[in-house]
Amino acid sequence: MSEINQYTARDIPERLSSPFKRVVSSWEALLLLVAILIFFINTQATPYFLDWWNLSDATFNFTEKAFIAFAMALLVISGEIDLSVAAIIALVSTAMGFAVQLGYDTPALVAIALVVGLACGAINGLLVTGLGLPSIVVTIGTMSLFRGISYIILGDQSYKDYPESFLFFGQGYVWSTVTFELLLFVIFAIVYYVLLHRTNFGRAVYVIGNNPTAAVFSGLRVERIKFLLFLLTGIMSAIAAICLTSRLGSTRPSIGLGLELEIITMVVLGGVNILGGSGTIPGVALAAIVMGMLIFGFGLLNVPGIVMSIFIGLLLIGVIALPKIASNLKNYYLERKA
């Protein structure tokens, strides 16, 4: 890059583009536009869409996945990945179901869920940071391991009989048509926004994702931060497991099967670079809403699940290819000009 437009040391401005311009030209702005578009198409496509209760139901399509996606976003930005999240859901749910059989009540179930989630995250984190193994391999392994344990414990059985108070997490409303899960989604969006964009920890995550060597040479404890991110992902998987189990009212070993790919789709759609280094929480939150509304709209239109997954696959590839195609086109025109 040439250093045109240089200023003398005395007056280097802080930023060149105005905050407004940056927001308007961002990926998040594009996502917001897409969300509005899908909302509009849905309202035209089916009269049932614009109904408060239907809309409230629609939020379940993304809330639980989004909890994990927030933590996953941080992990992916730091240059790692966790493919075992859906398996953690199964193991956590199985542990809760097992505890129900032993007669434990809701507070104990939540505690058990968090401990199991934390333990799963710690196993992933230790294997990746302690032994220096690649996270994609480690978590493919623990994905089979965690769900395998659920299958061993449950076989073709299922746990039911969750206490009445436990069902609030996935079925309760806090106000009018606002579900508990939706409230949690908003709270987590804010918490993760602050964590990633407003704290030293969040800055460290970006630095590690952009240049792990320079991070070490700048005094960051890279391994410790990555370990914490795996713990965080484990806890968020546990919280998602609580909500999902509560909503379904039962535990089967196949619970949440394949969810990890939808979560990673959500993260990438939200503008997080799959190779690490960039991405935002507002982007991920918007991507969650877009995906939720798409699935809901398809559902209302009676589109079969298999077509839905084809569409989501195309969406993911399109999202990754789009910036590349755009820059290729740009180069092509610049070359023709020259």
Partner: peptide, 30 residues
Amino acid sequence: SKRGFLQIAEEFSLAREFTRRLDLRAASLD
């Protein structure tokens, strides 16, 4: 930072102070 929270304004003033001492040539600190 304050209790682990970033202080963007402080970051800019730190960057301004030390890059000025070294006569950094750049279009913006961003």
